[in-house]
């Protein structure tokens, strides 16, 4: 079975000769279909850059990236947009819901760009919201929802196009312990349903709920197969 994510000597360099900053350097990493993995590392270790490259939000400066068997490293803007639309769902720390749209419309947004008909959009968005336990909040605007509820709307939006990969950037960073547990339960269920889940996190407690930890430091992978139990609570205070 081919890997879903296959990074080959990926580098991401900002700036030019003198002021060069190597955000990623010679990173090779594979993540299989159905995996549930966390990306960890100290601040500035390149984990967020890696996540942007994995999510096709950013293009690497060098190397090859096979996503779902396709080399996506140097595709143009609109092709990447189409891949993100069909195969990747995003959950961000700051939720990034559109304030002017209802929960239902927010969730339906990726389907609008995916060319799904209006009736089907409504049906699938409703199902996605029910799936995250917000079946009774369809018409609420983001401002009328709590942080945990907003993040669940964002998760519904991420899964509504039935992606291969759910990519979460500090999904619990803005949430309290109770809602963090709720969100992690949803992730686990989604993973059991077959979706590959990759998340960047700072919290060892959250990382311990995943199957595998990828450890970054100074723009490189230092441990690609760390056991979640081995993540100590003081690990990030290096």
């Amino acid at each position: 079975m081919p890997s879903l994510i296959d990074l080959h000597q990926i580098s991401k360099v900002y700036g030019s000769d003198n002021t060069e900053v190597k955000a990623l350097w010679d990173v090779s990493l594979t993540i299989d279909q159905g995996d549930y993995c966390s990306i960890m590392g100290p601040s500035g270790s390149g984990k967020s850059t890696a996540m942007n490259v994995i999510g096709c939000l950013d293009r690497p400066t060098g190397g090859q990236y096979f996503f779902d068997g396709q080399d996506v490293a140097q595709l143009d803007d609109d092709t990447l947009a189409a891949i993100r639309n069909r195969k990747i769902g995003f959950v961000f720390q700051q939720f990034h819901l559109l304030p002017q749209l209802s929960a239902l419309d927010n969730v339906a947004l990726p389907m609008v760009y995916g060319g799904v008909a209006a009736a089907e959009r409504r049906e699938r968005a409703t199902m996605a919201l029910q799936r995250v336990g917000l079946g009774n909040r369809l018409t609420n605007k983001p401002s009328q929802l709590s942080g945990g509820q907003q993040q669940r709307v964002a998760i519904a939006r991420a899964i509504v196009n039935r992606p291969l990969l759910l990519l979460a950037d500090e999904p619990t960073g803005a949430l309290d312990t109770t809602t963090t547990a709720e969100v992690m339960t949803i992730f686990e269920e989604l993973n059991q349903g077959g979706i590959t889940v990759v998340m960047v996190t700072h919290e060892p407690a959250v990382a311990r709920l995943t199957k595998r930890v990828v450890w970054f430091r100074d723009g490189q992978v230092v441990n690609a197969h760390m056991q979640p139990e081995d993540v100590s609570y003081g690990a990030l205070v290096e």
């Binding site: 803007d77 609109d78 990034h96």
Partner: peptide, 16 residues
């Protein structure tokens, strides 16, 4: 700009 970023993240093309 953030809204534009999000729309692009979920699959909007430049033309959209």
């Amino acid at each position: 700009t953030q809204e534009i970023g999000l729309r692009k993240a979920v699959g909007a093309s430049q033309n959209d």
